[in-house]
């Protein structure tokens, strides 16, 4: 890994941490405020691609492990890993990877704006919702002993919010792609 990639990974990890410290932002059309940290995971994949995106998320998780309060609400330390929702945190890794891989494959270097936007959205949903929830649900089954259907139904309430985040991530990733392209092209 060259030094520039190392710096990009670190800067993006800093962005994810900072997103957890910002006050929740409200979207114009719905009254529910969104917390931006899980948005950061989708952004990492759609903007930096699979490898660097996953590494920056891994860096944030390592910062949690070493005892820095980097998660939203000032959470941090090993105690976070004792929570029943730990799968949603570990799941950040495959989520960023899948989002990044699909973005590289289908959205990098596309001239057609709308197709690129749609592909970025699909990539963010596939990683940041499908893969992330799969990990979270498996985590709840293992840690809390919940049966699959119960763990699934308990998580579904959060899906609409995360779909909105995927939309925000896709729009923001496209804006970054236009202003400062970083996504490697994968064929």
């Amino acid at each position: 890994m060259n030094t520039r990639d190392l710096v990009l990974v670190s800067l993006f990890a800093a962005i994810i941490v900072a997103l957890g410290l910002l006050p929740p932002i409200t979207l114009g059309f719905i009254p529910v405020p969104i917390t931006a940290q899980s948005l950061g995971v989708m952004l990492a994949g759609t903007i930096l691609g699979a490898r660097r995106g996953t590494l920056s998320v891994a860096l944030v998780i390592l910062l949690v492990i070493i005892g820095l309060p980097v998660l939203s609400g000032g959470r941090g330390g090993l105690a976070v890993f004792a929570g029943p929702t730990v799968g949603f945190l570990i799941g950040w890794l495959p989520a960023a990877f899948v989002t990044g891989y699909l973005s590289e494959r289908f959205a990098a270097g596309r001239a057609n704006g709308f197709a690129q936007l749609a592909n970025l959205f699909i990539a963010a949903v596939a990683g940041g919702v499908v893969v992330l929830y799969a990990c979270g649900i498996v985590g709840m089954m293992l840690v809390a002993g919940l049966p699959f259907m119960k763990a699934l139904s308990g998580s579904l309430a959060f899906v609409p919010g995360d779909l909105i985040k995927a939309g925000v991530a896709a729009l923001a990733a496209r804006a970054v792609q236009a202003g400062y392209p970083l996504l490697p092209v994968r064929s």
Binding site: L6, V7, S10, L11, A13, A14, L59, V60, L62, L63
Partner: peptide, 8 residues
């Protein structure tokens, strides 16, 4: 990398 994150 840890240092860079904390710094930035």
């Amino acid at each position: 990398a840890f240092g860079l994150v904390v710094r930035f």
